[in-house]
Design a protein around this nucleic acid. Sequence first.
DNA 1: CTGTTAGCGCGTTCAC
DNA 2: GTGAACGCGCTAACAG
Lengths: 350, 350
Amino acid sequence: MSPRGARPSSSASDERAATLSQVAHEAGVSLATASRAINGSPDRVVGEDLRRRVLEAAARLDYSPDANAQAMARGRTATIGLIVHDIADPYFSTIAAGVSAAADEEHLAVTLANTQHDPARELAFVRTLQQQRARAIILAGGRQDDARANEALQAALAGYQHRGGTVALIGQPVLGVSTVRADNGRGAAALANALLDLGYRRFGILSGPDRHLTARERLEGFIGALDAAGVTPDAVVASAFTRDGGHGALAELRERAPEAEVVWAVNDVMALGAMTAAREAGLSVPDDLAFAGFDDISTLRDVAPPLTTVHLPLEEMGRLATPLALDVDGGVREVTVSGEVVVRASTPRR
Amino acid sequence: MSPRGARPSSSASDERAATLSQVAHEAGVSLATASRAINGSPDRVVGEDLRRRVLEAAARLDYSPDANAQAMARGRTATIGLIVHDIADPYFSTIAAGVSAAADEEHLAVTLANTQHDPARELAFVRTLQQQRARAIILAGGRQDDARANEALQAALAGYQHRGGTVALIGQPVLGVSTVRADNGRGAAALANALLDLGYRRFGILSGPDRHLTARERLEGFIGALDAAGVTPDAVVASAFTRDGGHGALAELRERAPEAEVVWAVNDVMALGAMTAAREAGLSVPDDLAFAGFDDISTLRDVAPPLTTVHLPLEEMGRLATPLALDVDGGVREVTVSGEVVVRASTPRR
DNA sequence: CTGTTAGCGCGTTCAC
DNA sequence: GTGAACGCGCTAACAG
């Protein structure tokens, strides 16, 4: 193996990185001075000359501070944990992009945890992040109305917070921590009204799991608005909150609501899956059946016909969650973003 | 604030977590014994009785090992870094899901770095991950043929490796490290032949940036196959390797290749963007113009008409990269996955 | 402004 | 088997 890469000008180049004390030695100053020069604490009080000497020595040795040692000495890390249900889902990957961008600005590293929709894994990740002493945890994704799971999670988060960690949620504030939430009910109601305005009267609804709070909020908002207009949906079919959930549930919906003019799914991926299923069944969209969703994931830009939905600023939500999560002053805050109805060609006027 | 969460049975419950030595004290054993009992080093030589006492004490104190301290003492972390161009792009988020799953199995945490297509940021992340002493780094995304940027990156990676870090790429092996690569040339050629078989003779091509190696490999494979059949593309238009790149470049392609029967873009997101642009221009897909892509991102499941493409096992590629990245024995290995042509309705027989 | 000295929490030699 | 002591690399008092 020929030696490659950086080559310190002096002495032996070990397998391991140069340490601060080596830098200090090389610069002929004390450890403390080297530390101050390189880090420049709030009190940037190192003589310009020494400071320069240290920096040069560091460059010469290709010094790279050890974040673990710093974390240890400082008592806190520069890491933020992000827990999502499924990073491959555009909903979450967009949120992740937002969190990542915001974390970047704060010079924080992001540890990604992908639960694959498994509450047990979610719990395990909270513990792992606690071990890493992550400064904050952001939990993205709607909660379920599952007392046991929520209690376990809440206990784990409480333990984490008890030790100085801070937490934010993107979803529902059921856990007593700061939360970025979407005004699901209002958004869904607005969408329902928009569809009514367009002339739709026969609705088939693909709801998520009964206990999924986001699904429930949206469903209630939507049905409430229909109700106010004296309209009752032909059928409401529950399924998983995923693309495949929507895809698989369409057949039942058609059976139970053969007269439906429009199918509304509680999120976009479900709507897309259902739309595909409709096509597979030989239907034409939107002529035979119209479709609408919720979220406005970026994927929709290239879907035909363009899907009517409720726009949520997903990346922004990820961004917003970051300062909330980092907020140490213990206040439980709540930020609500509102959804905006976007009518597109998947729901033409009737 | 009412105290909530875990409550140690004994003494005061500090703001900070219980330490191993507290556990040792609580259990009436030495620090060393506690360490061995909880960790069970290769030499699991702690009496069953003591072991039990320690574990109980740990549970009572709600002990949570400090990963930073462990990393420090052990000399290595349990973290793997993942650098991607854009986590919101389905191509990368799917790879990320694969990496995440594989890392999970190895009990490694994943630090996510999102470069937003900026080489400078990429470099910065390599440094950050080095500071974190991440055990390995996975760089996903095709390289550019940019000597300066590549050299800088290569130097940074070499420094990282010099200090014991290991690296793997998902893309091209231009950096002298282990790589998971797709057989882009062969896949593209197979696609070209499939399109020829379907009766297409007039091709409009949306290539990526000239210096983008993945784009180039695919382009060359495709054109080579056309060539062998005595066919020359009507036009090749370069653009960004993104959805918007494809979307924006379609107009020029139509201008330069008005007779084209099919548009092939070097990746799916570009093809989708272009397809949308075609529709916006009033064309019907695939009747007026057929489309094909490359990658088979999951998004395609719900696109209409279904897009013909070359399937790449993206999640699997992320999975495969993980052991490669972790491989300490210094061998530069290369794994090639092959793409499989998938003909769908976006390219009907002519 | 700069240097000395304690730790941070844990793994790991060494002795016993 | 178990315990005592050292060190990982760095920051943060505390002195000068």
